[in-house]
Computed example of a mutant assay.
Amino acid sequence: MSLTPAQLRARAESASGALPALLLAAERLAQQVAPGAHGLRRAGPGEDFWQYRPASSGDSARSIDWRRSARSDAQFVRDREAQTAQTAAIWVSGGRGMDFTGAEGRETKLDRARLLAVALAMLLLRGGEKVGLLGEPARTGRLQAERLAESLLAAAPMAQDDAAPPAAALRPQSRVVLISDFLALPDWLPAFLARAAGSGVTGVIIQLLDPDEESFPYEGAAVFRSAGGGLRHESRDAGGLRAAYLDRLAERRAFLAAEAMRAGWQFGHASTAEPPSDRLGWLWRVLGG
């Protein structure tokens, strides 16, 4: 979808205006889930002091901190902290369907996905990891969260309802988080996960839905249209479709869970009605935070 210079300028101004609010909300969320988080706190090669520990039979005389040992009857080793940065990539679907909300005042799926992505990035960056959007450079440092948020806000909306992540952007031994509603059949997923598994890439799949998409509360005559306009269905008894819809939703989740398990990934589903801390906390735990 091509944009005029005026449209590009308007989008840039809109993204710039929304950036402080997104960063502030993500920072508050990250603090709520894991205040003071430091994901790489373990002994290993590095320059920063971590802890003193009693010397063991495998420690050489050179590794003993004699100054600290002189203050007691035991010998102590000065451990340093591991500084090997892991790489994490986050993908948020840009499909038109992600801009849906079922109620006025309720955030869209895209808004919630952006919040989770930036808050998770902040937590990972605090642990010294390299983080980026899938297909963009992964970096360390505090400014990377701002760069990631800017990219999410400035992304052009897609014409179609669903989107697929760039499999060519996968990097060996990295971790990937995919966030989408997955309402359109993700026929790209098996090949994507197979390529990931072949490169030692692990990750998490999140299906993020609006509460109306989870419960299908509609009754009476209704017209259903896809966000991209490609699909349309008119019904005189929307309530009569509920059971079939919920069955299809359960089948989709079973498919996503099975594909994730086959590749050694994690699968979870979330709703924009739940506190964002619930899903972020789960993500932090399964990623080893």
Rank of each mutant, 00 (worst) to 15 (best):
L170A: 10
L193I: 06
E234D: 11
E213S: 06
A238R: 08
A221D: 14
R236N: 12
G240A: 11
L209K: 05
S226G: 15
L183V: 13
S215Y: 12
I179H: 05
G230Y: 01
R232I: 05
A184D: 13
S180Q: 04
I179N: 01
E219N: 08
F216M: 15
D210I: 04
R195P: 01
P217V: 02
R175A: 11
I179S: 03
I205C: 06
P211C: 02
S199F: 15
L231S: 15
Q207F: 07
L178T: 01
R171V: 10
P217E: 00
S226K: 13
A194R: 13
L208S: 03
I205F: 02
D212S: 14
A194F: 12
R171W: 10
E219K: 12
R171G: 00
G230F: 07
A194M: 09
R236T: 15
D237N: 15
E219S: 09
T202K: 15
F224D: 14
V201N: 00
L185F: 11
L183E: 12
R171F: 08
V176H: 09
P186K: 01
V177F: 05
A238E: 13
A222W: 03
F192P: 02
A227T: 09
V204L: 14
S180L: 03
F192L: 15
L231C: 08
P217F: 04
W188S: 00
A191R: 11
A221V: 11
G239E: 03
P172S: 05
L241E: 14
V177G: 10
A184C: 12
A191N: 14
D210M: 09
H233P: 01
D181Y: 02
L189G: 01
E213T: 07
G203E: 05
F192N: 04
F224H: 07
Q173R: 12
A196V: 11
R195D: 00
L241S: 05
Q173E: 10
F182G: 03
A244N: 15
E234R: 11
E219Y: 04
D187C: 11
F216W: 15
S199D: 11
I179E: 00
V201K: 02
I206W: 10
